[in-house]
Design a protein around this nucleic acid. Structure first.
Lengths: 324, 324
DNA sequence: CTGAAAGCGCTTACAG
DNA sequence: CTGAAAGCGCTTACAG
């Protein structure tokens, strides 16, 4: 049923070795022989079985990608960056998620050795670091995306969270805001403390509300502040979703944005253009991060040395009407 | 380096056959023997090589997924549905995109036979139908998502585009709107003509503007209508992105939503909650469609018969403030 | 320039 | 209940 290398060899009147050589452009093959083999290959529509090739060569020409969730707003861009790069190198991409807690971590790690992939790109799901470290030590090349720079053992691609926070603060300061509120993401995320520290390094403030990257967190934070009568003239939300909640709560309370209160988000997800008013936000180079991570991994698989330093891709402040 | 079945066999003092049997729970194995083998497996951390298993069994326990783009707003949900279902069945998911025209189609189809995946879930990229048909005829199980019901050759999962359009029209009609505008998606999409036909079956109108599913299309459509002095009291946009453009143009022109003009979208992407005003829209059960497609494919791979009819998942009108 | 043979790590009749 | 052997479809020394 399926056309194998043996079929081609028989049809062309040569050995499997020779067929393999012309397919892989390896070793010398007589011109006319090669031509004949190529003809037969085209005629039969032969394509080498990747499974068999992988088994024989000991590598699968496939990389894995592990992410916590596929529905996060910037995940599509990231994934597209990885896939494009991986496909261009003629590799396959095996996708795993870890959104069901311990059970799925368990399943994933047990599949690592089973699934033949040569390396892994990871957006770190919570509580997987130990397992990943073990896999890495046992020889699996891994590249981390959006690492906090705290796992020097791994190659990683990061963005300038600290500087991103600082740029938001500079923008608010330069437009005359003096009493900013920060609505953070989950405290144990490295990016959260970096964004906060960057912001405060420019515009010190004690008005920090702990959030969790949800729209609700942004809404509740603002509602509580208004209820308490806290005075503030601007909000820096640690992601755009939270900023959307902030905008909604301000509107509901009759505060004008940006006249009364300026709002800055983080991420620059597609939605940021469509809020009312459109959101000023710190753009993360998500797709480029995906591309870079894939490139680093492929280079590693190609035999290159692991880079010493995390690869840093810059954020960029995008000014829209919520904080002109 | 890697632990193989031979290592386990040697260590446990049995044959590879026996190890294989306890791993796969196949055939009778003596209790104490099995226990010993299991112990060695745990101790050595043995996991069968999926490549070798696939080669020997002739199947890869992997499914492929082909999509036009990963950055479409509802793609994350869809993908999550597929991945969850596939992972729960202990299959792997190989991801392919086709966003670079002919070249990538070429590459994809050539990889199909190479990559060992047993079946394919497809969100049909443009101009791939011929290739997919050929692959399907040559034996590759394929499930289409959001097919237009026009490719009876394939198993497919669809949503009620016609009824979705009709539900939007009923809602507008029941709230007293009589002069609706429809801003469509690309004319050659089956879902577009279905949504349009459904809408018109309830609320006939000639005010149809051809769009292309972009925000810009929605903006331009409204700007032109207003410029021409066309009278209308509502807009049905064929997707939420377009509806966002409509809202923006109306706001810029000083028209109130929904007082002057009601707006209804299609899709119910995350952004729909965050527009101003929040968007009334026809919800597509995206994640469920992904789950269903994966389930159908897995059933097929498990030896089940292909279903006769497309699987239809219902849309649902979500009422928000843009059309209360 | 070309081929026979061993080997990659499994599964699966077949035989006992 | 257990194992020796062939086979899955390739690649790669090795020999000529």
């Amino acid at each position: 049923m399926r056309v194998t290398i043996a079929d081609v060899a028989r049809e062309a009147g040569v050995s499997k070795t020779t067929v393999s050589r012309v397919v892989n452009l390896k070793g010398e093959v007589g011109g006319s022989t090669a031509a004949r083999v190529r003809e037969v290959i085209a005629q039969l529509g032969y394509v080498p079985s990747s499974g068999a090739v992988g088994l024989a060569r000991g590598s699968s020409r496939t990389v894995g990608m592990l992410v916590p969730s596929l529905t996060w707003p910037w995940m599509g861009e990231l994934l597209q960056g990885v896939v494009d790069t991986v496909e261009a190198a003629d590799y396959g991409l095996l996708l795993f998620t870890c959104n069901r807690g311990a059970e799925s971590v368990e399943r994933f790690t047990s599949q690592v050795s089973a699934r033949a992939f040569d390396g892994l790109v990871v957006v770190e799901p919570e509580n997987t670091l130990d397992r990943l470290t073990a896999l890495h030590r046992s020889g699996l090349p891994i590249v981390l995306i959006d690492d906090r720079g705290r796992h020097p053992e791994f190659t990683s691609v990061v963005t300038t969270n600290h500087e991103g926070g600082a740029s938001a603060a500079r923008h608010l300061r330069d437009s005359g805001r003096t009493r900013p509120v920060v609505v953070t993401g989950p405290a144990h995320f490295g990016c959260v403390s970096d964004r906060l520290a960057g912001f405060r390094s420019v515009l010190p403030t004690d008005l920090v509300v702990a959030g969790d990257f949800t729209e609700r967190a942004g809404r509740l934070a603002v509602e509580r502040l208004l209820l308490e009568g806290t005075e503030f003239d601007s909000v820096f939300a640690h992601n755009d979703i939270t900023a959307a909640g902030v905008l909604r709560a301000l509107r509901a309370a009759g505060r004008r944005v940006p006249e009364d209160i300026a709002v800055v988000g983080f991420d620059d997800i597609p939605m940021a253009e469509h809020t009312e008013p459109p959101l000023t936000t710190v753009h993360q180079p998500t797709r480029q991060m995906g591309e870079a991570a894939a490139r680093l991994l492929l280079a590693r698989l190609g035999g290159g040395p692991p880079p010493e330093q995390p690869l840093v891709l810059p954020t960029e402040l995008v000014v829209r009407r919520s904080a002109p």
